[in-house]
Amino acid sequence: MRELRLKGRSIGLARPIVMGILNRTTDSFYDKGTYFDFDRFLEKADELVAAGADILDIGGVKAGPGDEVTLSVELDRVVPAVEAVASRLDVAISVDTWRSEVLDAVLDAGAHLGNDISGFGDPDYTKVAARHGAGVVATHIRLKPRVPDPNPVYDDLVANVRDFLLQRVDRALRDGVDPRSVIVDAGFDLGKTTAQSLLLLNSTKSLVDTGYPVLISASNKGFIGETLGLDITERRLASIAAASFAMMLGAVIFRVHDVLGTVKALDTIAALRGDDVVDRFASAQET
Rank of each mutant, 00 (worst) to 15 (best):
F38A: 12
A186D: 05
V252G: 09
G274M: 13
D96Q: 06
D149I: 01
I141M: 11
T70D: 11
P148Y: 10
R146Y: 01
E83S: 11
F38C: 05
I216K: 11
A45R: 06
G229T: 11
R273L: 12
A92K: 01
L103N: 03
L165H: 13
V177M: 00
V95G: 04
A134F: 00
D185V: 07
K62N: 13
K144A: 11
V252E: 12
V169L: 09
P16A: 06
Q196F: 07
G274R: 12
V153K: 15
D67S: 12
G33R: 03
V169D: 04
F36L: 13
K192F: 02
I232L: 15
P16L: 04
E3W: 12
Y212D: 00
A45N: 05
S87A: 14
D275Q: 13
R24A: 12
S219L: 05
F164A: 03
R142C: 10
D279N: 15
L22E: 11
R142M: 15
T26H: 14
I224A: 12
H112E: 03
A246Q: 06
A241K: 03
G66P: 14
L13Y: 10
V214A: 15
L75V: 03
A265M: 14
L113Q: 05
V214L: 14
A92M: 01
A105R: 15
R162V: 10
A86M: 01
I93H: 07
G229E: 09
A51W: 04
A105Y: 09
K7M: 06
L103H: 08
V169W: 07
A105T: 08
P213G: 08
V102W: 13
T233Y: 13
V91T: 09
R255A: 00
A45P: 03
F120C: 04
L113K: 08
N220W: 11
N160C: 03
G8I: 01
I93A: 09
E3F: 10
I117K: 06
D27E: 15
